[in-house]
Design a protein around this nucleic acid. Structure first.
Lengths: 185, 185
DNA sequence: GTCTATAATAGGATAGAC
DNA sequence: GTCTATCCTATTATAGAC
């Protein structure tokens, strides 16, 4: 049996990149094969269930990433401002300063929305819950914290859409810069 | 020659609905045929250039809608608060209180993003410019007006993404309700 | 203006060799 | 673990009858 061309983690990362850039339906096996350097058939070694399998693995990775860089930091004990600051810094890296599309956003379009409905909902809910928790710790009442958390996630997602549509990362970068001060003055 | 089953305007509306719900790549001719009640071949009577043609016609309609319900009102002479209020009311109707996805947002995913790049950019730019103009008329300085306009459009787009992903129109409805007061206190 | 029929290609997936 | 070859279906698009 030939040695693997790439470690599985690297294969998954490249599949994820294709999903982010082209959406679920636009991520054809031909393009994924090209991006990974594997033949179409070889992809079924890593993802026996085909494209749906790929989507789920990519969402596994996304959930771990969220856990480590967002849910974890937000749920810690330190000062809320610092916890939120860590989240913002990680998001800046994940989205490459606004140049990269949001995987979750692209998956909410088309068939993938119904296919991964529960998981998308869970991830967004967990994000909002964790952020609302930090805002409560910073002094907001329950309701205000939740509303500001929802609005914050929406602003981030929307800024990423705008960055894609207008080829302008300015609003996203400004948003991340301002959110630290705005959320916990 | 047989009478048309539907007026062209109605055909275009239904095509647009499919694009909004499924995205450009998910909007297959089979689904569009079903939604319009026309055979696949008949679609080429209305859209000789195929799917790309459909996309452009749908964007034509979107531009007219924006002109009438957003750019027009925002550019008028009345009180900025009223002009912005009219925009918000129209957006609420267009997006069905948050239940309907944003066509522009779905088109920024996948091939359609590059296919309609210039037009998407133009529409978002025009929206932001018009809103910034109204905010300047309400007393914001040039820079603040532009930044708040960008942020507002991002919040709207993001709230629509969230509504799709979480099956919760709450944040979108709350946003539209609050924007009137927040933008022009 | 709409249809049936059909072409040509692309897409997802599988079999089996190595 | 990767490949070539292949299958089946879906997809876009066209031709031509009515």
């Amino acid at each position: 049996m030939p040695a693997p061309l790439l470690p599985k983690r690297e294969v998954v990362d490249r599949v994820m990149a294709v999903f982010r850039e082209r959406g679920f339906e636009g991520a054809t096996l031909a393009r994924i094969a090209e991006a990974t350097g594997l033949g179409k058939a070889s992809l079924y070694h890593y993802f026996p269930g085909g494209k749906e399998d790929m989507g789920n693995v990519v969402l596994d990775v996304t959930e771990s990433w969220m856990q480590e860089h967002v849910l974890g930091p937000l749920g810690e004990d330190g000062p809320p401002r610092q916890r939120i600051g860590r989240m913002l810094k990680s998001l800046d890296a994940l989205y490459d300063g606004g140049n990269a599309a949001c995987l979750l956003g692209t998956l909410t379009v088309g068939d993938s929305r119904t296919l991964f409905r529960k998981r998308l909902q869970w991830i967004f809910d967990a994000w909002i819950d964790a952020l609302a928790g930090a805002l409560r710790d910073a002094g907001s009442d329950r309701r205000a914290a939740r509303e500001r958390a929802e609005d914050t996630v929406a602003r981030i997602e929307g800024a990423l859409i705008l960055a894609q549509a207008r080829s302008d990362t300015g609003p996203f970068r400004r948003l991340l810069r301002q959110l630290g001060d705005d959320l916990v003055p």
